[in-house]
């Protein structure tokens, strides 16, 4: 086995299965489709919904991930950590339609009727919660990885200087994990932007209300408006490229 063999397998597969689909989107762009999409108020609302909901979901994910990595650092033997760790892996294996249904039952009319006729379901809050549910574990894993890379003695020293575990965590550990926190946010944000199934199950797909970019593309394909679907899809690709570029830039800078 040499480099030529690896290249002969890797390069064709990579270009055919990863690069080519993206190129297919771009070459199918059409001026009329671009004009129609740019003039569509529902498109811009879906962009706004996507960015706001994904940012809120990523922030919420970060808050919970910060708590999780605290337990990871200090209380790995605790029952709280073990349960949290088990649930952390759940969104990876769970079909996201199931996640959406679970959220619908948990925060729908029956339990959250006081919020409105449908509870929290089919609101922007539902979109945020659905995005959070599927993206949180990425933030948690990133922070845990940050904890693993940290020099553990700093915690020991902080504690001998009078910090309890929470003080050491917030005064020393978190400030030294800026890179992991930023990466956790960006990964959570990008995963949230890409979410479709859980969002559509719990948040719905109401144009001008809870529709996000992913569901906008789906709707346009469904009604046969392929030109607009392609434009919105290319916009998604560009948005994703910006997100991953930010992450790569930070990684290179801190390498």
């Amino acid at each position: 086995m040499n480099k030529a063999v690896i290249n002969s397998i890797f390069l064709p597969l990579f270009f055919l299965l990863v690069v080519f689909p993206v190129i297919a989107l771009v070459i199918n762009l059409d001026v009329q489709g671009i004009q129609a999409t740019m003039a569509d108020a529902f498109f811009w609302i879906s962009v706004r919904n996507t960015v706001i909901a994904a940012a809120l979901a990523a922030l919420l994910g970060l808050v919970v991930a910060i708590g999780f990595s605290y337990y990871y650092l200090f209380y790995q033997d605790s029952i709280i950590y073990r349960i949290a760790n088990l649930f952390n892996d759940l969104p990876i294996a769970l079909p996201h339609t199931v996640a959406g249904l679970a959220l619908l039952l948990a925060f729908g009319r029956k339990t959250c009727g006081f919020l409105g006729e449908t509870g929290a379901a089919f609101t922007l809050l539902a979109v945020v919660l659905a995005m959070f549910f599927v993206s949180y574990s990425l933030a948690a894993r990133t922070l845990v990885s940050g904890v693993d890379q940290m020099e553990k003695e700093v915690v020991d020293v902080a504690r001998t200087l009078g910090d309890n575990t929470a003080q050491a965590y917030f005064r020393v550990v978190l400030p030294m994990m800026g890179e992991a926190i930023f990466s956790g946010f960006i990964l959570g944000f990008s995963r949230s932007v890409s979410e479709f199934a859980a969002v559509i199950m719990f948040g719905g797909n109401l144009p001008g209300s809870t529709q996000v970019l992913a569901s906008y593309v789906f709707t346009k394909v469904e009604v046969g408006d392929l030109d607009m679907a392609v434009t919105a899809a290319v916009f998604c690709v560009l948005l994703s490229l910006v997100i991953v570029s930010v992450l790569s830039f930070r990684r290179v800078r801190h390498a």
């Binding site: 003695e153 400030p175 030294m176």
Partner: peptide, 9 residues
């Protein structure tokens, strides 16, 4: 400790 473990921030 063995490494100075200074608070880098």
């Amino acid at each position: 400790p063995q490494n100075p473990a200074l608070f880098q921030h």
